[in-house]
């Protein structure tokens, strides 16, 4: 099928403001949007810039706005988008070039929630056992690939870049609900701060955007309820 693809372009060293380039691309209906971008870059316009690495939905490099919604380019088929496509960078981060945004602030927030197991008790002789029932509480949030699709789909984040955002909270949830983890209080300092989970307005754009199907909004709601009930 012939696709008319509009891509938002911006090269800060030469362009005063972003503009759109339109390409006519031939693609198979079962091609992924990433394949189509590759066709553009390799055959039509080598200056088009975007991130991709694994091409199989696991590295989280190629989240972008496809027809107005955050998606991984390597995980959506061209036929599911249609023959008119508009591709733009994720919202809320500085555009470095074309579809590439500055992810540093995103990873800063990720680090701020201490996304690792903290337990200073002496290690037991065997393992620190987790039963399937215990795993159930945070299984969903183990699946995050840090693509930032959720955070950059979030209206409270667009209007306040200091909000830690859904992705960091998903990764906090992963450890908050892990019975082996002992850093609940440390993490709560960040999570229940001014820029923490309470900024979430349950817009559900994050849940819709997540390529891993994580129930992002629900994870944040569970964190809110835990903060509330622990205090009570």
């Amino acid at each position: 099928m012939l696709i008319q693809c509009k891509v938002r372009r911006f090269n800060p060293t030469v362009d005063k403001k972003p503009y759109f380039s339109t390409y006519q691309v031939e693609a198979e209906p079962t091609d992924r949007v990433l394949d189509m971008l590759n066709t553009i870059k390799w055959e039509l316009d080598g200056t088009l810039t975007y991130r991709r690495s694994c091409a199989h939905g696991v590295c989280g490099s190629d989240a972008m706005r496809i027809n107005g919604r955050n998606r991984l380019a390597c995980k959506v088929l061209v036929r599911d988008i249609g023959n008119k496509m508009t591709i733009e960078p994720m919202m809320g981060f500085t555009v470095l070039r074309d579809l590439v945004v500055d992810m540093e602030p995103f990873f800063e927030k990720y680090k701020a929630v201490k996304p690792y197991l903290i337990n200073d008790n002496p290690a037991p002789v065997t393992e620190r056992l987790q039963s399937p029932e215990e795993l159930e509480a945070y299984d969903d949030t183990t699946k995050c690939i840090l693509c930032a699709a959720c955070t950059t789909a979030c209206p409270p984040f667009w209007s306040n870049p200091d909000f830690v955002g859904p992705a960091a909270l998903v990764n906090a949830h992963r450890f908050i609900f892990d019975s082996r983890d002992k850093a609940g209080a440390e993490r709560a300092d960040v999570i229940s701060s001014r820029e923490g989970v309470w900024r979430c307005r349950t817009v559900f754009n994050c849940t819709d955007a997540c390529p891993r199907g994580i129930q992002v909004t629900n994870a944040m709601e569970e964190v809110k309820r835990k903060l509330l009930y622990d205090r009570a």
Partner: peptide
């Protein structure tokens, strides 16, 4: 512009 669904409209 972001094309949100019901959740975004309900919030707006």
């Amino acid at each position: 512009m972001y094309r949100g669904r019901e959740g975004m409209w309900s919030w707006i």
